[in-house]
Design a protein around this nucleic acid. Sequence first.
DNA 1: AACGGGTTCAACCGCTTCCAA
DNA 2: GTTGGAAGCGGTTGAACCCGT
Length: 208
Amino acid sequence: MQEEELRRGQWLEEEDERLAMIVAILGERRWDALAKASGLRRSGKSCRLRWLNYLRPNLKHGDITADEERLIIRLQKQFGNKWSKIAKQLPGRTDNEIKNYWRSHSRKKALIYEQECFGNNTSNSEQKSSSVPNSSNNGDSFSEKGDCSSADSLAYSSNEVKLLDCIPSWSYEQSRMEHHMYFCSLNLCSCYAPWTSEDNVIMTWESN
DNA sequence: AACGGGTTCAACCGCTTCCAA
DNA sequence: GTTGGAAGCGGTTGAACCCGT
């Protein structure tokens, strides 16, 4: 009965102000109690999320920079979809923001990869669409069972091949497919070496 | 200008983990 | 060791926005 009274959807400026005020008084804990104390008709969960993703001090609200993008790509490779873990490495960015960024950008990469993989071979149009990540697999990575599963279908530049020789910890197919996407997205110019666990390692090579 | 499809992002959902009693 | 509430987390949804036609 009470749940019906809870507000959902977009937050109003007035709600933000009230939440920020009550958090300043009570601190970032006991969100259910905090939500009730605030008088906001929001769940504790909703308040917590709003605070963490939008109102919290020191959050960056601008676009993801090129450096941040490289870091995200590298960390995603390293940690997988551990967004909170990745977010900890990017001060001012939230896990939700990074997750959204990755999802939208991984789709673009998938398209680039698709073009590289199939060129203008329209006879594969049905299969091509299946190679693009969809909502069911969260779009975070290629389905290894997709039509691109054949690593032989990938064409590598000599630079890519040389670099892949440096990635012993990755499976052969994973290395080829995912790095191919990665190289495409970065235009084969310069990038972090995603396979190393060391920070600040940048590998640069010439693209032709 | 209107429409439709694609993209982005804030917010929600539900499961898991943590921790105090 | 168990339990229940709180918090954390990743996946999903849907509305707003963008862009091409």
